[in-house]
């Protein structure tokens, strides 16, 4: 089964004619993703390696049956692209773009949550369901199909943990990068809820980092609603307070949001937290054997 992306995914890429969109969109197609369309205003009627380009998302939905939108357009146009996808009736919107103003996302969030759209990102690496579909920049070749659901606020750290799992012969149902911004479309809780309901997923790994309280909320949610085993890793134990560490969301203010605080909150709910990515992978292996 997997979550968010599967064999029914029909992908439209906003910004397919741009260099990033083209490179990754075609890479996603080469992986086996059903890439049905691209959208670039003013370039409707053209094609990128045989993929038809439309002027609007609505035309891509009508003309190519797109149900999932992957957004690669620059920050100042990205929120518009999110609204356009939602209003065109797209089910799932995945936004890779970083540096979208936080206030713009705040308003967009209130809007798309009301429309029932699944939104992943922004400032995220995308979603990969190994063996089925890949939408975004996750290097699919380091992952294999299996039963571990992986949800993370980070990109490369997710690859690191996925790689460690693969080395131990373990595969993934879906890898979801929820993004590192202060306001993202889906939280840990949203994604964990989907993994709990997914038949393929046997165990869930949460990869968190300093800042905010989403890990703490996830811990409470898991204790109440999740029957599958959940393991976690938190990055940023050595981070000084008040400093941003690359991700706009990764800032600690005051006592809340520290790595130690998150670890304690998770452990208090019975969720084991690995000290290094390697240890997390070993913990997963021992649980699944």
């Amino acid at each position: 089964m997997a979550i968010i992306l599967d064999n029914d995914t029909r992908l439209v890429v906003a910004g397919l004619t741009g260099s990033e969109g083209r490179f990754h969109g075609l890479r996603n197609r080469a992986y086996g993703t059903n890439l049905v369309a691209g959208v670039t205003p003013g370039k409707g009627g053209q094609d990128v390696e045989g993929v038809p380009i439309f002027d609007t998302v609505a035309e891509a939905v009508d003309g190519a049956g797109a149900n999932t939108s992957l957004i690669f357009v620059p920050a100042r146009f990205a929120v518009d692209a999110i609204y356009e996808a939602v209003d065109a009736g797209i089910d799932t919107v995945i936004c890779i773009t970083e540096h979208i103003p936080a206030h713009d996302m705040l308003r967009a969030y209130r809007y798309f949550r009301g429309q029932g759209t699944t939104m992943i990102g922004p400032n995220c690496p995308g979603v990969l369901s190994p063996g089925k579909a890949n939408a975004g920049i996750i290097p699919a070749e380091i992952f294999s199909e299996g039963g571990v659901g992986l949800v993370s606020r980070s990109g490369t750290l997710t690859y690191q943990i996925g790689h460690e799992l693969t080395q131990l012969g373990l595969g993934n149902s879906t890898i979801v990068g929820i993004g590192g911004d202060p306001v993202v479309g889906s939280s840990f809780v949203d994604v964990i809820e989907k993994f709990e309901a997914d038949e393929q997923t046997e165990l869930i790994v949460l990869v968190g980092e300093i800042g905010g309280d989403e890990e703490e909320k996830a811990a409470a949610y898991v204790a109440e609603h999740v029957t599958k085993p959940v393991l976690a890793y938190i990055a940023g134990f050595s981070a000084p307070p008040g400093k941003t560490m690359g991700h706009a969301g990764a800032i600690i203010s005051g006592s809340s949001g520290t790595a130690q605080g998150k670890k304690e909150a998770l452990e208090a709910r019975g969720i084991e937290v690995g000290t290094t990515p390697t240890e997390v992978a070993q913990m997963v292996a021992s649980r699944l054997k």
Binding site: T156, Q160, E209, S238, P240, G246, A250, T276
Partner: peptide, 26 residues
């Protein structure tokens, strides 16, 4: 971001960067 040690750390990506700093401390 400057910290106060002697092992210079360089990684690609914020999450892996934070994790690398932690693993050096570990």
């Amino acid at each position: 971001v400057k910290l106060d040690g002697d092992v210079g750390v360089l990684a690609n990506g914020a999450g892996l960067g934070m994790s690398t700093v932690d693993v050096v401390a570990h």
